[in-house]
Design a protein around this nucleic acid. Structure first.
Lengths: 207, 207
DNA sequence: GTCTATAACTCGATAGAC
DNA sequence: GTCTATCGAGTTATAGAC
């Protein structure tokens, strides 16, 4: 029985290294994490073992951000959505995205590391790889969600991206004394209100 | 004539160090930048000179993020705004914020560094320092902007923060092949549409 | 307050035995 | 494919002359 079923499949050891690297990058930062500590965290007795699986430190980071990319999940979930009204569909999309955000919070940290340490080159590569699938998804949704056909699809993509990234960033940065004033459920509800109705449309009564 | 007019005033040398550190942090990352290169960039012939002005590397970062904080500018600009209608006021606020974003793009990079390297402790300190002023600002705006009195002010603060952070993040991360499809002016206009009217309200006709 | 010099250590990466 | 051992260069921070 052949063990490797494709050149893009990572072996068990490679995955163990990525998991170890992720824990350390999050705890100590990218540059603050040494190849030595990654090796130790992954169960190796020496650094040299890493270099059998990855060419260098940046290759580990690139492998990690690819392993954690949430687009397959996003596209699958959004495809599966149906809504009787535009509001229901948009609401469903945002619900899906916030769920996926929580499940993939690690990815957003990796994006920030990529931006600061590498000028976001790996994220941009990822986005270009799935460019066509995103476009197709938005074009399929446009009529159902009653979005204007005159607006380029890329506008809706970025506007949704703004909500997602902004939501994650503020969640991580705002003091607990602010965030704790409302429940996660309430925060999601208010944000959805904004997306559906705009700022003035936020009424503050939970139905 | 006394040269220092308050213990919080930074001297010329300290400012030169902060400027040098900022350039290097942005070019090479925080951990990728050494005290040696900061010293050289600031015009010193040795590292030791830095330690006369800052206790250690983290003190330089803290001094930098405080020097670059945009809240005084934000509050001053928002105070000065007047709008005949709620739409005009909210529109004016977002215009001010995006202008300030462009003028303070450096601050947002520092925020991300703070989040990744220090768990955002310095940003949270900053926010807590100006907590009351932000609240006061929002409460003064609420009736004019026709925002619901039943919604806690903190909701509008975070929702505006989401737009700002999301706008900056996507601007920095999206491939140029996406971003370049529209002008900065068009991007601002569409984002404002979302804030005022919600997703379905985006019509795509520039008036 | 700036300098030289250096201590004490860690870094990424590799050579070569097994 | 994992190990030991090590290279050469880098790091923060400090001691002490001026």
């Amino acid at each position: 029985m052949p063990e490797r079923q494709g050149s893009s499949e990572k072996g068990e050891q490679a995955m163990a290294i990525l998991n170890a690297a992720e824990r350390l990058f999050f705890a100590q930062g990218y540059n603050g994490t040494s190849m030595r500590t990654i090796a130790k965290e992954a169960g190796y007795r020496s650094v040299a073992g890493l270099y059998n699986h990855f060419a260098d430190k940046e290759a580990i980071f690139e492998g990690l951000i690819r392993a954690r990319q949430p687009y397959d999940d996003i596209i699958a979930q959004v495809q599966a959505l149906n809504g009787d009204t535009p509001e229901e569909l948009i609401s469903g999309i945002f619900q899906s995205l916030t769920q996926l955000m929580d499940a993939h919070m690690d990815f957003f940290r990796l994006v920030m590391i990529d931006y600061l340490e590498f000028g976001a080159i790996h994220v941009r590569e990822l986005i270009n790889d799935i460019r066509d699938r995103i476009y197709g998804m938005v074009q399929r949704i446009t009529p159902v969600a009653n979005l204007s056909e005159e607006v380029p699809p890329i506008v809706f993509i970025r506007l949704m991206g703004i909500q997602v990234f902004g939501y994650v960033m503020t969640k991580n940065i705002m003091p607990e004394s602010f965030l704790g004033l409302l429940s996660d459920e309430q925060w999601r509800s208010y944000t959805l209100d904004l997306i559906l109705n705009g700022m003035v449309g936020i009424k503050g009564v939970q139905q």
